[in-house]
């Protein structure tokens, strides 16, 4: 198989693009795809500092690597979720990535935070799925870190497969408010929110894994132990089967939605107006934000458990 750009021996085949690339041409292709996503979607400008949420996985580290290589001013943010050996390995690899490249990295361990709550403790106390608590905590700490650090923009490593799976879930359940907000750039709807961007929204998991491998990025290959049976993985499996039969389906699903579908939902009214959380001051739909409601629930459940023991 030959490289589509230079005709050297190819090392990766991308059926969705009807192309194959050698190592240098793939790195060029991947970086150009990300750069075009940033500029065409007006994600951020050259003079804006970007806070990059990094997990130690292939996507977020590939994103950080590309942004640094393209000359953007970045800082990494790693959230220590407290998920045993998985979190330990993730933190170790993220720190090593940053140290090797001389990059600034904030590490926020949840069990050492103000509320001292890591994900397993929240899931155990509330009997909720860990992924539900994880999403709420991530959003809260990402928003706080971006605000406290004066960053105008927060970048995450969500890739094409993530976006396609999310879109499938939103369409299956006709989640109109979520469809209205499924965009690669979310502009702040409150003064205490910052712009949120997904520069990898056009690049597949195969592409980000290949990029990380070729760039020598030592990422966490293991999956989060809590992700087994996650709905997102069911959607991804279906989409991958579809992609196998009809290459390019995932990319078309997401990009056609963004160009032709999403505008139809864009006028959907927000469910509620946002005020300020009474406890932490972050945006909230009621008296408390989602994070503080969850923390309060943990406190209630623990008190009930003590009372019954």
């Amino acid at each position: 198989m030959k490289c589509k750009r230079c005709t050297d021996k190819a090392i990766v085949q991308l059926r969705s693009h009807n192309a194959a690339f050698c190592k240098p041409c793939f790195v060029f292709f991947f970086q150009r795809t990300v750069e075009r996503a940033i500029t065409r979607e007006h994600m951020f400008a050259r003079d804006e500092r970007v806070l990059v949420a990094v997990s130690g996985g292939k996507d977020s580290l590939a994103l950080w690597d590309v942004l640094v290589d393209l000359g953007y001013e970045t800082e990494g943010l790693y959230l220590g979720l407290g998920i045993g050996a998985y979190s330990n390995a993730s933190e170790r690899k993220t720190r090593a990535f940053a140290e090797k490249r001389g990059l600034r990295l904030q590490v926020v361990p949840l069990d050492g935070s103000e509320d001292g709550l890591a994900i397993p403790a929240v899931a155990a106390a509330t009997r909720r799925a860990p992924c539900s608590a994880c999403g709420t905590f991530k959003r809260h700490y990402f928003d706080r870190a971006a605000l406290d650090g004066g960053f105008p923009v927060l970048a995450t490593g969500h890739n094409l497969d993530d976006e396609a799976a999310r879109l499938m879930g939103n369409v299956l359940h006709w989640q109109v408010p979520y469809l209205a907000k499924q965009l690669p750039v979310l502009f702040p709807t409150h003064p205490r929110f910052v712009r949120k961007v997904r520069p990898l929204f056009r690049t597949s998991e195969l592409e980000s894994a290949t990029y990380s491998f070729l760039r020598g990025i030592d990422y966490v290959v293991e999956e989060c132990p809590n992700s087994h049976g996650a709905t997102q993985l069911v959607y991804k499996d279906i989409l991958n089967r579809l992609e196998h039969s009809m290459p390019g389906s995932k990319l078309a699903f997401v990009t056609d939605f963004l160009s032709r579908g999403q505008p139809l939902f864009a006028g959907a009214p927000e469910a509620v107006d946002l005020g300020a959380c009474e406890r932490c001051g972050m945006p909230a739909a009621g008296e408390l934000c989602g994070y503080c409601r969850l923390v309060a629930e943990v406190g209630r459940r623990r008190a009930q458990a003590v009372a019954h023991s």
């Binding site: 996985g57 992924c131 999403g135 799976a165 195969l206 894994a209 999956e223 996650a230």
Partner: peptide, 8 residues
């Protein structure tokens, strides 16, 4: 494997 997931 290149597939990862769990939380959006």
């Amino acid at each position: 494997a290149v597939i990862s997931g769990g939380v959006w």
